[in-house]
């Protein structure tokens, strides 16, 4: 008889099946762990590090670390929160996250996680990257300056759409999203607005056209309640 083992998340027992990660088991039990690159439909990626937790005294990413019997996992301690804020600050200064001028504001997962973790300032020196916006596609605008390299579009295009439109290229801080087309432009690729990849971006990097500012302020996804209660952008879009 298969009996569920449990681990403890901030003192709360969480059941898990063999092979489940800390993240999978926590989400299944209705416990929220902040995350950006994790998406239940895709293989874990482990790039954003926002889901960092302290498991038996070690800091690990909850989305890649397998759950283990009787493990003590800390997600809501002050030190973990501070670590997450530092990671978020790095993501914010690395791109041009001008929320007041972004159509995704109010329904952006990066912004919502930053609110949830209590980030008030960028702390670090801004990079102010200068990557040209790709507006070649009729249905979607691609702003590389907001991309957080979560690879959700890469995974969606490869694993679900079977198109391999996106990839990450370059090394170190030069790493960037690229498009597989003869010109490198999205408009010349096989990308379509109906693709899964068009709807998984957690930030305002892959932005569908003609939908901006339709939702009144106050009624946007994260206006009234935090992401820990509302859930991911992708989950709400599908609903």
């Amino acid at each position: 008889m298969a009996e569920h083992s449990t681990f403890r998340l901030d003192g709360r027992p969480i059941p898990f099946a063999p092979g489940q990660t800390i993240m999978d088991a926590a989400l299944a039990a209705g416990a929220y762990i902040p995350h950006l690159c994790h998406h239940p439909e895709f293989a874990p990626h482990g790039s954003c590090r926002v889901c960092v937790v302290c498991a038996d005294g070690r800091e690990v990413s909850a989305c890649t670390a397998p759950a283990a019997k009787d493990m003590e996992v800390e997600s809501q301690s002050e030190s973990i929160r501070a670590l997450r804020v530092s990671i978020l600050q790095m993501l914010f200064v690395e791109g041009n996250h001008v929320c007041p001028a972004c159509e995704k504001s109010g329904a952006c997962q990066l912004q919502a996680v930053a609110y949830d973790c209590g980030m008030l300032e960028p702390h670090f020196t801004h990079f102010f990257p200068r990557r040209a916006v790709d507006a070649s596609h009729p249905d979607v605008i691609l702003d590389y300056n907001r991309c957080i390299l979560c690879e959700l579009c890469v995974r969606a295009s490869r694993d679900q759409d079977g198109k391999r439109v996106f990839a990450i290229s370059g090394r170190g801080i030069g790493s960037r999203l690229i498009v597989d087309s003869p010109t490198g432009r999205l408009g010349d690729s096989r990308f379509a607005i109906t693709d899964k990849a068009a709807h998984v971006c957690p930030v305002g990097a892959i932005l569908p056209r003609r939908g901006g500012y339709r939702v009144p302020i106050g009624e946007r996804l994260y206006d009234r309640a935090p992401i820990s209660r509302v859930g991911d952008v992708a989950a709400n879009e599908e609903a």
């Binding site: 041009n96 001008v98 929320c99 001028a101 960028p122 102010f128 200068r130 300056n145």
Partner: peptide, 19 residues
Amino acid sequence: VAVGACAVNGGIPAMRNSF
């Protein structure tokens, strides 16, 4: 105290940093 997006991260005026 840094009050507002501009003081906090440059804000809208910092969009000129792209040029």
